[in-house]
Design a protein around this nucleic acid. Structure first.
Lengths: 115, 115
DNA sequence: CCGGGTTCCCACCGTTCGGTAGGAACAGGC
DNA sequence: GCCTGTTCCTACCGAACGGTGGGAACCCGG
C-alpha cells in the first residue's frame, strides 16, 4: 500500500511510514512519557490519565515490535518490567515529535479556534 | 479527553492535538501533495495512487475545517475548485511534517527491518 | 441535444481501534 | 495460607475509518 505511493510521491511515502508509527491514539503520548527515562507500566498508566490497561499493553507491544521501545525485566520477575526508549525511539521523540509538539503549542490558538 | 492528559503531561497534549491533525491515513499524503502549489481534486486523485474518491473528499473537508487547506473556486463553477495550503497548513507541512519525512528517510532501514 | 469529464454526496460493508470486564500468573506483606 | 498489587491476556462491544458502488449536479465539446 505504501509502495504504490512511493512510485508517485517518494517523500510522502516516508511521511506515511512515519505517521503510521504514531497514528494510534496513545502511542505518541506514551513515547513522550518515556522521555523522562525508563518507566514502569504502572507509572505510565498512572501518569497518562484516560488510557486503558489493554491499550497500554497493545501500544507498548506495538512500539516494542517497531523498535522504538524496549522492555527490560530484572531477571524473570514480572513486576519489575521497565520500558525504555531505544535509540530510534529517542530520535523520534526528541526530533520530529518534539517539533510537532512545538508547532502545536505555537499554533494552539489557531487550532482550537478552528476545531 | 485531551484535556485530561494536559493536566499530567502538558507537552504530550500538544503532541496529541498535532497527531490528531494528521492521524488519518491519507491526510499527511494529501498535505504533502499540496506543497507543490494549488491543486485540483482530479490531480490529487491522479497523483496519489490508492486513495479513493470518498476518502479524498473527506480528507479535504477535514483539512479544510481544521484550517490547513482552503478550497477556492473560480466563481460558481464546480470543476475549477482548487485546493491550497493555508499558512497554518504550510507551516505544518514545511516544518514538522518535513521533519518527520526526513527522519523517516534517515531511519528507513531501521524501520523496514523491524516491521 | 448528448456523451464525457469533473466534483461531490450517500448508503453499505469489512476491518481496525479504543474501552470494558474478567481472569491468569507471579511476588510480597499480613 | 491469604490477600493485595502488578503485569499480562482474553473475550466482547461500539465507534470510527477506509473502500466500493452508485448517483446527482455541473460544464464543455461533439
Amino acid at each position: 500500500m505504501i509502495e504504490e505511493n512511493c512510485e508517485t510521491f517518494v517523500s510522502d511515502c516516508h511521511v506515511r511510514a512515519a505517521v503510521e508509527l504514531i497514528n494510534h491514539t496513545w502511542d505518541p503520548v506514551i513515547l513522550s512519557a518515556l522521555r523522562s527515562g525508563p518507566t514502569r507500566r504502572k507509572d505510565l498508566l498512572h501518569r497518562i490519565a484516560g488510557v486503558s490497561d489493554k491499550v497500554m499493553t497493545e501500544s507498548l507491544r506495538r512500539l516494542s515490535s517497531r523498535g522504538l521501545v524496549t522492555k527490560t525485566a530484572d531477571g524473570s520477575r514480572r513486576d519489575t518490567a521497565v520500558y525504555e526508549l531505544t535509540g530510534l525511539g529517542a530520535s523520534l521523540t526528541g526530533g520530529p515529535l518534539a517539533q510537532l509538539a512545538t508547532w502545536a503549542a505555537e499554533n494552539q490558538a489557531a487550532l482550537s479556534a478552528t476545531s
